[in-house]
Nucleic acid binder design. Sequence first.
DNA 1: AAGCGATATGAAATCGATTTCAAAAAAATA
DNA 2: TATTTTTTTGAAATCGATTTCATATCGCTT
Lengths: 344, 344
Amino acid sequence: MGKMVTIYDIAREAGVSPATVSRMLTGNAKVSEEKRKRITELIRAYDYKPNALAKGLRETKSRVIGMILVDFVNPFYATLLSSCEKEARKRGYSLIVTSTLGDRELEDAYLDTMCQQRVATIVMVGGRSDELAPDEGYVGHVKRIAESVPVVTNGYLGGAEGCRVRLDEEKAAELAVEYLRDLGHREIAFIGGKGEIRSTVEKRLKYAQLLMQNGLPTRKEWIVDGPGYDDKSGYEAMRKLLALPCRPTAVIAVNDFTAAGAAHAIWEEGLGIPEDFSLVSFDDTYVSNLCRPRLTSVSYDLEEFASRLIGSAVDIAHGRKIEQNQVVEPKLVVRDSCKQYGGG
Amino acid sequence: MGKMVTIYDIAREAGVSPATVSRMLTGNAKVSEEKRKRITELIRAYDYKPNALAKGLRETKSRVIGMILVDFVNPFYATLLSSCEKEARKRGYSLIVTSTLGDRELEDAYLDTMCQQRVATIVMVGGRSDELAPDEGYVGHVKRIAESVPVVTNGYLGGAEGCRVRLDEEKAAELAVEYLRDLGHREIAFIGGKGEIRSTVEKRLKYAQLLMQNGLPTRKEWIVDGPGYDDKSGYEAMRKLLALPCRPTAVIAVNDFTAAGAAHAIWEEGLGIPEDFSLVSFDDTYVSNLCRPRLTSVSYDLEEFASRLIGSAVDIAHGRKIEQNQVVEPKLVVRDSCKQYGGG
DNA sequence: AAGCGATATGAAATCGATTTCAAAAAAATA
DNA sequence: TATTTTTTTGAAATCGATTTCATATCGCTT
């Protein structure tokens, strides 16, 4: 690769000092109109590209945000990533990304890598910080990292420098349960996923609590956790529900994939949605539009989520004051997978 | 943020020169066992994290690969991204990513940004380089960029330094057409998407050519381009096919989303898959498993694609010789969306 | 014990941009 | 016009790691 042209080359050609060129580029000080013109011209002519590494070194941090997600393929995260990238770009930042697929060691390793990369901020969504009870080791690790790089997460921050932007999972559960209740359903099941992920646990707990508060029947068998978070997991969970002597009339599934899987199990049984079962999912990804009938789903505004995550990340990097605790509220998107119980 | 500890700090504490610490870290030269121990100990104790910016500056390039994709949300690219990230990590590289959503200016801007970031290589999949006839301006831009940073792409490289890893779209079309032909179908339609995207054009051309070669009827109305690449686009395209006086018996859709949309149009008409229409899609994302019936789809091994893209990117960065032109072959994944024509 | 090559080490230059500090030039004031 | 104030500018230090080159240290040979 040909040597790249540097600020020195430009300065020499323009007959000024590198400092002057730098000042022009950053706008940190005035430069006489005459030199300004000459320099601008040369920059164009030589196709000069400022070296971000040198700049980052000098300023002890880069204009890059490190983003750690559980999974790029899941459309919820894919959409979030897409929005985050747009937000970052808008603010003049780039995104270094990694997906951990739940691998703890990897998460640790990548926190480290990003630290070495001297990213301005680390944004972490899902993963260990999002478990119900992150272990001691993890908390310490994040804390240690956060001594060098601020962290923005939707999960547990543990007093580290940074901020938290969480999704209101309880409100989400409430929207689902109350919608079904208002439709006249009394027998409502809940399909969860693997592990004690905070988002799942919070929904499940709220679901159970709301059934009680509303005087609806609660049954242990109506809370089923599949082996994962994909359609197969939902399928298996629904099969268990279908095998029950006392079937529910409505099902809440922890995400669109599990809901789609549940739908397949229902069809396989020769039953229909919403005729025989009403179905509500969470996340409102494009999958809920791809299913027939289209799934009624609880939706988070991912643009808002992204804007808060990246906005906070950038604000922290620039030493601005930010809200330590932010919450994104869900809303219900009604489609075709539910109907009035007993009614038309 | 607290100052980070540097190689100087470690050196001072260990009573050696920074050079020695560096040599130990990089392994570029021998260091006596005694100092080695002392240094290792201190690095642990101080939680020293080498500054990748400084390293990159010194070595005039970073261990980061810049990745430009059209769209993170599309599961084809999401999966590719996921695989690429894994491949990069395996080789000690990080990924800076951006999605252009087809915006040309953005693509140009981001080529620039990554250049400034001094990424080791730029990997570009989809987007302008992947158009059938990239315009002069674009070709020049890539060429100029490629003078500073090598480029790996699935599309047009235009003699720039780098390499090309393409998907064999023609073979993919062949697998689809021949499969349907072997099932006895003679009336086969093709649903494309918006614009003259190379991948689409190549498939469509091959499809048309194969119909001729096989003596199957060809009709202009059987080639329909939707307004995009999503399910709605496929839906609209299929409605046009359904409105035809002479309907085809099989449909090839340019990706899983358009296929899913086409399926909905078919159901809406009260018809069934595969009873009334056989349906083959491309890409074989999880969407083809999410549909009922599951879609028969032409699949690319994205792990191989990713491995070739990132492998080449890293090899080029290290000045190793690489194959200038690589091809990834597709295979057909048979599921439940096709059946013998006329037969059982 | 003197001389030789092989190793381990340190001092200093380097990568490219920013910034401090001081000097020079320009503008404003007396 | 002389003097002060303000604005532009350049020289040099800095960010943190790597590497070249020279020197010190060691073991080995004769």
